[in-house]
Amino acid sequence: MSVIKVDQLKKRFDGKEVVKGLNFELTPGKCVALLGPNGAGKTTTLRMLSGLLKPSSGAVSFEGMKENGDVRQHIGYLPQYPVFHNWMTGKEFLVYVGQLATLTKKQAADKADELLEKVGIAEAKNRRIGKYSGGMKQRLGIAQAMIHEPMLIMLDEPVSSLDPIGRREVLTLMEELKKQTTILFSTHILSDAEEVSDDLLLMSQGEIVESGSLQQLRDKHQTSKIDLAFRDDLDTYMNRIQDMSAVTDCYIERGEIRVLVEDVERARTEILRKASQENWPVTKFEVSRTSLEDLFMKVVKS
C-alpha cells in the first residue's frame, strides 16, 4: 500500500542531470522528510511530483488514480516561497483556490473557515494578505494546500525561512496535520526532520542516498567513532590515521578529526601508540558513537 510511487524519476536541465533516477514509495499517514543540502534536487523533485515540472523520464503514480486522471486533484503543494494575490484577503484566497480545486463556493467557504481556524490565522481572515507576516503567509500556504483534502501534501522547506517562533508554530501544525494526511516535506535542517517526520529520505546530488524510518537509520548508522583534536594542522595527521588498519573512514569536521572504527579497542591502541611514538600534540581524544547528524554531514560533504 502506498500513496505515491516514484519510479526512476529523472530530470535534466540543459544537459545537466539534477535528479538522477529516484525510486521511492510513501506509506499513507506517514510524515516523510526529504532531507538534503541545498542544491540536492529536493525542490525539483517536489515540483515534478506536483506536476509543475515534467520529468525527463520516469513515472509518478498515485494510489487509486484513474487513467488520465489529474494528479493535481490528489495533492496539495506549498512552494518554498509562496506568493499570493496580495490584494485578496486570506479567506478570499482560500475560497478562490478551493473553487479551482472543484469545490462549490459554499463548500470552499466552509472549508476555508475551518482551515483558517486550524492554522491559527482566523482573526486575520478578512485582512489583506499583503499585510500578513511571513509566518502567517506560511500558514495560509499550508491551508491552501489542504483546502481540497488531498491524499498527499507536499511542503517545500516549510520552516526554513521562519524565525524560531514561527518555526515552532509550523512544526506543531505539521504534527497536527500528520493525523489527517500523508505529508512529504523537504528541509535541509536535520533537527526539523527529526522532530516531526516518521521516515527520512536523505538526498544528495540528485540521488537518494539513504532512506528508512528514523529509528532504523539511527540503528544502522550508529557505529563507534573517535573524535580527535590537535594543536596543529589536522591534515598531516588525517593521512596517517587513515592508513591505520582499524580505521574504516575519517573526515574533518569543526576542527576535529572524526575517526570511524569497527573495533574501538584496537583503534584506540593503535592511535594512542602512534601518538605517543611520534609525540602528537593531541588536545582531545574522545570515544563516542555516530549520530544522524554525522551521517548527514558525511553525505553533505562528499
Binding site: R72, P82, V83, F84, L100, Q144
Partner: peptide, 13 residues
C-alpha cells in the same frame, strides 16, 4: 513571474 501561478496551476485547473 510573481509565482502566484505556481499556487493556481497546482490545483486541477
Amino acid at each position: 513571474k510573481s509565482g502566484v501561478a505556481e499556487l493556481v496551476l497546482v490545483k486541477p485547473v
